[in-house]
Every structure is written in C-alpha cells, then in structure tokens.
Design a protein around this nucleic acid. Sequence first.
RNA 1: CGGAAUGUGGCUCAGCUUGGUAGAGCGCUUCGUUCGGGACGAAGAGGUCGCAGGUUCAAAUCCUGUCAUUCCGACCA
Length: 477
Amino acid sequence: MAKEGKLVEAITSMEEDFAQWYTDVVRKADLIDYTSVKGCMVLKPAGYAIWELIQKQLDERFKETGVENVYLPMFIPESLLQKEKDHVEGFAPEVAWVTHGGINELEERLCVRPTSETLFCDFYKNDIQSYRDLPKLYNQWCSVVRWEKETRPFLRSREFLWQEGHTAHATAEEAQERTEQMLHLYADFCEEVLAMPVIRGRKTDKEKFAGAKATYTIEALMHDGKALQSGTSHNFGDGFAKAFGIQYQDKDNSLKYVHQTSWGMTTRLIGAIIMVHGDESGLVLPPMIAPVQVMITPIMQKKEGVLEKAAEIKEALKEFRVRVDASDKSPGFKFAEQEMRGIPLRIEIGPKDIEAGQAVLVRRDTREKYQVAIDEIVTMVAKLLPEIQKDMYDRALAHREEHTHTALDYDEFQNIITNRQGFVKAMWCGDTACEEAIKEETGATTRCMPFEQEQIGNVCVRCGKPAKAMVYFGKAY
RNA sequence: CGGAAUGUGGCUCAGCUUGGUAGAGCGCUUCGUUCGGGACGAAGAGGUCGCAGGUUCAAAUCCUGUCAUUCCGACCA
C-alpha cells in the first residue's frame, strides 16, 4: 500500500547504502545533533538516555567485582604523557593541546586526555605504598578527546563518553586474571543487555593498545558484515609501573613494581546497537536499554475515557519504562515515529478496545500484533519484553553465523573477502609482515585471536608456514 | 590527511550557468473538523542565502580563503 511506501521513503534503505542509512537513523531517531565543532555532537535526550542505561547497568556489574569510581583531571602535562614511550607514540598524533591560560602562554602545555593511563600512574605512585594497598580497582566515567580526522556520530567522534577502568595488582597473574575478567564482563554485558553476540579474544601485536603487553577485545558483526571493536581490556604488565616508578613494599620487605590493567567501553556501543539491530524503519532497541520500553498510543483520544484508560494502563505498568503519547498527531504518525525511535512495544487503546475490554500490543522487532484483555496487559508485557530481548539476540547471532566463513587457503580467503561479507576464520603464522600483507592485499584486518581456538588447518593461510593461531579476519569500522 | 560532493527559514530542496536584493513542500502557531499505519481546511509566524574578504553602481549568484556536514580511502574506541 501507499502508506508502506512512505515508511521506507523516510530513510535511505540499508540495502542500498548502509552508511547513509546509519546517518539517517542517527538523526531521525533523534539521538544526536551536530554542532559547530567538527566531530563533537550533542547527545539528545533519546541518545543520552540510552547511554545512561548502559552506564547504570555496566556500573553495577563493575561494582559487583569490587571496582570503585574515581574522577581524575582532564588535563595531562606534556612531560607526564611522555613517560611511557610506546604510549606517547600511539597517542601523540591525535591529542589536543592547551597552550594558554587566559592570555598567558603556559610554561608547559597540557594535553586534553585521550585516555588516562598516565594520570592514573601519577596518582598510583603516591596512592600505593604497601602490598596492603593492593589491588587498586578504580574506574572513571568521563569524556576523552582524540583529534580524529574523519568523524562519524558514535563511531568516531573527537570527544566521546566512556568509562576507563584502571587497576594495579601485586602480581602478574592477578593482573592477567583481572584483564580477562573484565573482558568477559564486557562480553556478557553485550550479549545479555545489548542482545549483541561478540567474539572474545586477543588482539595481535600489531593491533594492541599503545603501551600494553596484551590487549583483549570483543568483536561484534554489524548488519552490513563489517566488524566493530566493542570493548577492550589491556594487560600492561609492569611497563607503566617501571616508567612511572610505581612500587610497593611486599611482605618480605622488598620493593616491587605493580602490574596494571585498563579496560574501556564507549558511546560507540550505541553505534553498534544501531547497526546490529536496526532495520528499514529505523532503530530497534533491545528492551533492556530502551529508554521507553512501552509506548501507549491512545486512539480517538478526545473521546471520553480514552486518555483515562491509557493512564490506568500506564499506572498498571509502572514497573516498566512506559509513556503515553497524547500528542495530537494521527495514530499512523505516532506508530511510524515510535518505530523510528526503536521503542520495543506499543499498546494501542481506543474506544472499540475499551468497549471490548482489550488493547492491541505490537512488537517493534517483528511487528507482530496481539489482542490482549486489559487485565492481561501487565502479564503480557512482562512476557513479551524478555522474549523480544532474546529473539533479538538470536537473530543477531544467526546473522553472524551466516556471515562467518572459514578459509583454508589464500584463494579462498580473497574470494570470501571480495565477494561475501562478514568474518573469515583462518590460520595465521603469527608474523606481523603476513598480517600487514593480508591487509594490503584484501583490506581485511585481524580482528582477534579468539579464546575458543579451532584447529582448522596447520599452516598460515597466506604464507604456508606453520600456523600459530586461528584468527578472525574482517573489514572493520 | 588524500579524493568526491554539499552548505539558502526547524527539515528537504529550487533559484546560481546569463549578478538587480529570496521561493516551494514539509514542519511550526491559532481555530475548527479528524483519529485503528505518516489526516484535512482556513488564517499566520519564520531566512542579512555557513562565515570572512574581494570584484561590482549592485552578490544567494562571480573570485579567494576559511569552517562545518556527507560519502570513499589511510588512522583510530
């Protein structure tokens, strides 16, 4: 019908142009606005509310593992940033500098934090004296600045919101354990709360964080078959501790260096949610992070009793995030707008329903409609929301599995990368030169060496030397 | 940072080639009728044409610079 046409006209089709579809959804779902500073966006209420829900649920999970929140300055003196060689080399090209205070030039310029390892180290140096002070399990919620050249909402902005966890431990083993623990916490969060399946594994040396001994990652597959790094956890060993002189006195009276970790997740997750779950009608939010889970839409709202009944239903559903859309738009407009914004469930209630003692429930993800007795609405909502959450995960997982291929030789590898989308699993020799050649020749990068290794062959997919690991390759955001 | 494109009321765009002082649709406001998939009528409000220079009697239009946005690459969460 004609009306159906109008819905898809509103945004670019994801099949035609995924990048443009993404940009359209971000704007039309009212998540952000652009500003006059390149790469810095306004997170509008609909977008910020998603972040708040992510933040709240992640924060709870952190605290269950003993993590405490702190807040450190947003400025780093140049001399401090330069203490760890690899770290400064990794970040120097993209930091913003403060050179003046008022009209006076500063004696030492300050960088706006791109990440806070150096600040935490500077702080730990004083905060840690004895083995009794360890471990330190700190996290901060803040924004960081990286002067990116090419920017995209949520995926790559110059300022972005994130959390950065920074821990200090007495032993290497304990640091390693924490690094992996947080990676799994991230992965579980993505899967349980964002309904987004992820691959858990380790980054190659080429892809690891500047200054890290080892970087672990969770990688998700977007709807267009490209990979998105969705969270990372780093083990620094004692590298930073040696650069900054962070020592503690152990039981045996000797001075030892601490072992550190850091881990972070960002507003990029919102981009991931859009690109994993979204469809031709816009955003589809998993119920657990949907700022509005249920929108009640009154029909013929000026008829006596309609708004009252809507309010009654809202009250009955108060354990959920529920709202009534009593604006004087037509119902069709409201339906389309709610779909664009990804609201998981809507309830239609009109005079006919009231007479029949029922209401209509509609799922955002499948558009399935249910006629439900008004008394049954609470039960039905309580049943449908988790069902939507689970179905969304299952669909995302099925999509990833359909788009995960295995390559036994290089011809096959190139063929898959060129002609299909998604992840390619292949064996790799462990040599950076090979990894770089693959990137050069195919555009695919190593996403991660998964914890769950499969022995799909014995030799490197490119060079034929003995293989060291099975790697997920893919084109990445 | 390289390549391409764009910038005109809140949004989408026309006008620019050939300079003469700004238009449409949607949205917004008010009133009325409507309401189960993007309603309708009537009356209104709203723009120094991204910004800064230059050329000219005169610039949305021509020239230079700059900023921002989008897409494609390189780099990154």
